[in-house]
Amino acid sequence: MLPSKMPVMLLGPDGRPTAAGTAHLPADDELLRGFAGMVAARRFNDQASALVRQGRLAVYPSSHGQEACQVAAAQVLDAEDWLFPTYRDTAAVVARGGDPVEVLGLLKGDWHSGYDPYGLRVGPLTTPLATQLPHAVGVAHAARLRGERTVVLAMCGDGATSEGDFHEALNFAAVFHAPVVFFVQNNQYAISVPLARQSVAPSLAHKGVGYGIPGEQVDGNDLAALLGVLSGAVARARAGEGPQLVEGRTYRIQAHTNADDATRYRTDDEVTAWAAKDPLVRLETYLRAEGILDDARAAAFTEAAEEVARRTRDGMNRDVEPDPDDLFRFVYSRPTPQLVEQLAVVHDELSRTELEARP
């Protein structure tokens, strides 16, 4: 039940297989698929950050440097499974098949969740820390009661492990044997709070032991190791072995959001050291050394990523005329008296504004 003493690693930062990696690397096609996903995720992050600077997005929490975690989380799931992301996991939702423009809808502020959760089998992006975890457990518990083979993968960050929702979700999942995988992306900071100020446990993966949940820690910049560990956790949950906890050790290369000044709480040397462990460079080095990736295929991956960026850019540059009634239309199937009253106030305010604007 205890995690390994050191994070599982199959490819070292230099792209060479470790002793474990020599025997346990995923199939070449899975690694290529993951690399293509990471190239697209990196380009998506860069495009979204540019849209913030252009005033087309209100805010964007980049996952630059965490692309291996994002892509692996989506890649290990089957079509009938569910993914529950956080606000930083937009790249994971795109990798799951989400339309990039719809995925950014919430961060632009023009729609409730941006995409259809039921169509994608992806929960809405969540800004409050850890609130999606009990929801994920509920979906997993319901699937088990119905006899479905569904597994739910719930993502969160290291900061979320300090929230009550995290512990409540783990306890409920363990007691009711829910088929859910809790995936903690430990990027070393809860906004500006370093991990040392959040927990003194040997690892965040150790937190599962108190609830009877097996945990494992993995190098979050090693896509090969992530695919192996996460797919194993999903398989065990699907086989009826209950919830699993996985901690991915990674790093948030860019600031928390565009509104954050990361230089106030971390050094350039720290960022540089982690940048040298870039997940894309690590996997590309291995794939090229083994003759699995050539220039033509790499160019095709880059072209596909540029197409994602183009679609994102074109879609976000279209102005949307918001309908104020949408604020109330999708809260309850039958509006409460309070909502009806609030809607009337909005209509009154808008009508007054229109009258005042007339010449």
Rank of each mutant, 00 (worst) to 15 (best):
P61V: 07
Q47T: 15
A68P: 05
L120A: 12
D89S: 02
L32N: 01
S49Q: 02
V8K: 02
A36S: 15
Y118W: 06
Y115A: 00
A140C: 07
V59Y: 01
M6N: 11
D46E: 15
L145D: 01
L120N: 11
G65N: 11
H141V: 13
R144T: 03
H64I: 00
F84S: 14
A143P: 03
L57P: 07
D110N: 13
S49A: 14
G109I: 11
P100S: 10
Q132G: 13
R149K: 15
A136S: 13
L77P: 02
P117F: 05
G109T: 08
A140K: 00
V71L: 11
V71A: 02
R33C: 04
A40T: 02
V59D: 04
G37R: 08
R43L: 08
E102T: 06
L129C: 09
W82C: 00
M9R: 15
T22Y: 00
E148N: 09
A136T: 06
G65W: 14
H112E: 12
G147R: 12
A72I: 08
Q47C: 12
R53W: 08
L120D: 11
A36H: 14
S63Y: 02
P124H: 14
L57F: 05
C69M: 12
L77S: 06
P117D: 08
M38A: 04
F44T: 03
V94E: 04
G97H: 10
G105F: 00
P13Y: 14
T86P: 02
K108D: 04
Q66I: 09
A41T: 09
A73N: 03
V122C: 14
E30P: 00
A50E: 07
A92R: 00
L125D: 01
D28I: 07
G105C: 09
L133H: 05
G97L: 14
D81R: 03
H24I: 00
P26K: 05
